[in-house]
Design a protein around this nucleic acid. Structure first.
Lengths: 168, 168
DNA sequence: CAGTATCCCAAGCGATACTG
DNA sequence: CAGTATCGCTTGGGATACTG
């Protein structure tokens, strides 16, 4: 049993933008970004391939990739196949690969609530056994949370009160 | 050991928009939407509260809430405290609550990669034991995936080939 | 309190054309 | 192949004022 400290700052007084969810959204929240990441996870790596598969304007794709590189999620790598001229490709960095649970959670939700009659368009499987992979909630004591209503939020050490404008 | 069928359609030939990730993003991908959901999860329920806490323009908030209601993630409920006049509040529906893993995955990523020196601004704990809750990847055979590179994607039953424009 | 209506303005998408 | 440059146009945010 872990001791739960009383909340110093009520949740609703925490600065809304100093929040890990908000911060992550600033990095992946723009249109196309998540789909670019999905394709990178799926092995689509070259600029033209991405542009065609996504159906996105090329300048937009260039911006998104630049932003992903700038944020350290993707790296641009030059490589040369034997006998070919040099090319470059985009690869997820370790930090980028850490977004896998986000994409998987998005996929799980879509499968459950937005899929057609045919079932999910894509599947993620465990490479070792072929079992279908999903996200689960689990606490540090090893309990699995079947339902998310056993979960409670409170402020952490980095919480900041809302900055209100000084009256006057 | 589950038998893994060979992929009928190569991954990169799957229609990019007929994808559970893309579908979920159409529902929660607009600016502010995820933060509205976060606040609803945290118990902020009334329009003005949301507007003030988020710092969003009121017409924008109205649009976002309407969209969430339309998509079945949120419901608008009228209620009356004794002696008060009627009010209404916004509540997550069961479908909306199913987005919890998405928000938690976003939070986990932000905590690991984008948090300041003070540590995470918010914590999710197991109501029963106080342990910190995180997302995990797990397969249907019960194996936990410590690293996401043990994961492989392939087309599911709902996969559709890219619709190419007929040449001509 | 809980929105709606209106306006202005900036960001940003997509198309197209161009470059190494 | 892999982008960059430019442009027109729409979307959509924010501020403000108004309504039940």
């Amino acid at each position: 049993m872990i001791n739960v400290m009383p909340a110093a700052i009520p949740l609703r007084d925490i600065d809304s933008t100093a929040c890990s969810i908000a911060r992550t959204m600033t990095v992946i929240g723009q249109p196309w970004t998540v789909l670019v990441l999905r394709d990178l996870f799926n092995g689509v790596r070259r600029f033209d391939e991405l542009a065609e598969h996504l159906g996105v304007a090329r300048n937009v794709l260039a911006r998104r990739l630049a932003s992903l590189v700038e944020n350290g999620l993707v790296e641009r790598v030059e490589y040369r196949e034997p006998g070919q001229r040099a090319r470059h490709e985009y690869r997820l960095t370790p930090a980028g690969r850490d977004l896998r649970p986000v994409l998987l959670a998005l996929k799980d939700y879509g499968d459950h609530h937005l899929a057609g009659e045919d079932g999910p368009p894509m599947r993620f499987r465990h490479r070792d056994c072929g079992g279908e992979v999903t996200v689960r909630l689990e606490c540090s004591e090893g309990h699995r949370l079947e339902s998310s209503d056993r979960l409670v939020a409170d402020p952490g050490p980095g919480a900041r009160p809302v900055r209100r404008l000084p009256a006057g």
